[in-house]
Design a protein around this nucleic acid. Sequence first.
DNA 1: TTTATTCTACCAGTTTACCGGGATATTTCA
DNA 2: TGAAATATCCCGGTAAACTGGTAGAATAAA
Lengths: 209, 209
Amino acid sequence: MYSGKIKLAIVDDHPMILEGLKSLLQSETRLEIFTFTKGEAFLDFIRGNIVDMVLLDIVLNDGSGLNFCKTIKKNWPKTIVIGISNQAERSIIFQFIQNGANGYILKNADAQEIIDCIHDALNGKIAFSEEVQQIILSQPHDALEIPKLTKREKQILTSISSGYTTPQIAEMLFVSPMTIETHRRNLLQKFKAKNMIELVRIATEYKLL
Amino acid sequence: MYSGKIKLAIVDDHPMILEGLKSLLQSETRLEIFTFTKGEAFLDFIRGNIVDMVLLDIVLNDGSGLNFCKTIKKNWPKTIVIGISNQAERSIIFQFIQNGANGYILKNADAQEIIDCIHDALNGKIAFSEEVQQIILSQPHDALEIPKLTKREKQILTSISSGYTTPQIAEMLFVSPMTIETHRRNLLQKFKAKNMIELVRIATEYKLL
DNA sequence: TTTATTCTACCAGTTTACCGGGATATTTCA
DNA sequence: TGAAATATCCCGGTAAACTGGTAGAATAAA
């Protein structure tokens, strides 16, 4: 399938990580490595070149990394995308895979793990680093799904987390306090939280705030 | 001062970062580099060897990195300690410096910045990467100091953030609900927060939870 | 051994949050 | 176009949170 050199792009805004990965992959002579510190620079590159594989830094769960992955997969479906992240949460990993990614590596992985993952992915497998696999295997049927919030709910949750009370938020949004109360209840249900305090902590952990 | 080779230790549990730093510092022939993925392994090493400088990964604000810095400075005060972190918050940087560190570098720094910092530190200066300097210069007198919490306050805050109510926490700790109420008020004052919801968000941002 | 901090505890009162039920518009999207 | 999803609104009730002020013990630090 990959007869000649394999073109591997690494996108990460940390020069240290970039250098580290390059160094760890030096021994792999089949790889031709291109590095980018900006997503835009990479997009410019892939528009004019074939890229077999991308190692993509996933910083936040705000969707920036996720959307970037989507964009790549939509326009260049043959390009293999592997996420690299510090985020070790099961649900985040799944989200990423569900958006078309071919693998997920934690930043604390060592050289051999990374190389194995790249080989696996090139062979059409879904590639996970060891710790990621353990995370997936644990919690067989996790109850820890990231709740999907509507625009209004996000807006209200943000206000709540800033310390505003129901009457205050109602006034800000020109709606009845009763409406805000309803949204609060829906939020509590979605997060299965005991109260808004716990909810805000959970939402922050999920990087929703 | 440093006539022969300079012994530089790098402590970071991410092999990628370790490799990256090593690679970025390759051109510096005066440096003799030792890498460690565990803090304990480094302590074993420094007990039997002279170490001129340590690049120390600071993961959390829970004090683990901070205490490690303290330990080194207490027992080997001549060893130069430079923190490496993703934490870009002013107060955290100051905390680190106040604990004896000689410099602070953000992980998104490039090769030249890092090398400059190392040279500066070897010359007795306090070394900051560019972005760190900007952070320090901005916010001339920030109101964003991290409140210092007592053991009891931390304990209670943790319970609150888990969704427990005042009566519940009182029962768990075998004290009067009134006591918990008092602690709540002290916490709100320390954080200058409107209510516990906002407080939990702030505390999470400061990595206190 | 003082001083300072921390932990403890109380009363009274107002506001807000949460829970149990509802109901009716307005979008969104298949 | 029609079923979902979303956003809006209401009542009544209980529990909890927050605000005001106050103050005696137990520790820790000077």
